[in-house]
Each structure stands twice: as structure tokens, then as C-alpha cells.
């Protein structure tokens, strides 16, 4: 059974610590080149096709800015 996932990031609350980037097993997440209104580079799905919706990024996120969705395919 395969899964496909996606994340939604609360951009204004993200502080760009990149702990989610280090803990993503599929290299889906990266820090954006742009910054939010506080000047932090926020995380986003750089390779959305890789995402399996495992939720590791949201589990380690200190600011709870990531919401995870997943479907079976």
C-alpha cells in the first residue's frame, strides 16, 4: 500500500529552524528563498511528489506550524 501526502505550513508562524528539513525522510521539505513578515525563511514542500504524509516534520516542529494530510493510492 502506498501513501501520498501533503503538508500545509502556517508561513507567518514558521521560524525557519529547519529541524523539519533535517527530519524529512524523503527530502520533501526545504527552506524557501523568500522570508515571512518577521524575516524568517519558512519551510515549504520543495518536492511535493516525494511526500508520503508520514508526519515526521509536524512531530518535531517546535512551533506546530505544519498540518499533515495523507491519502491511500
Amino acid at each position: 500500500m502506498a501513501f501520498k501526502g501533503a503538508i500545509v505550513v502556517d508561513i507567518e508562524k514558521c521560524k525557519g529552524c529547519s529541524v523539519c528539513v533535517a527530519n524529512c525522510p524523503t527530502q520533501t521539505i526545504a527552506l524557501a528563498k523568500k522570508v515571512n513578515s518577521k524575516g524568517y525563511p519558512y519551510c515549504y514542500m520543495e518536492n511535493p511528489d516525494n511526500c508520503t504524509g508520514c508526519g515526521n516534520c509536524a512531530t518535531v516542529c517546535p512551533d506546530s506550524v505544519i498540518t499533515v494530510y495523507r491519502v491511500k493510492i
Binding site: K4, A6, A58, T67, V68, R70, V71
Partner: peptide
């Protein structure tokens, strides 16, 4: 992605 991000597919959030 828009088909995945739906309330029924919610896995983990704040």
C-alpha cells in the same frame, strides 16, 4: 495537492 489537502485526509496538526 489540492485533492490531498481535505479535512477527511487530515493526519496530524496543531
Amino acid at each position: 495537492i489540492k485533492d490531498i489537502i481535505k479535512p477527511e485526509n487530515f493526519v496530524y496538526g496543531k
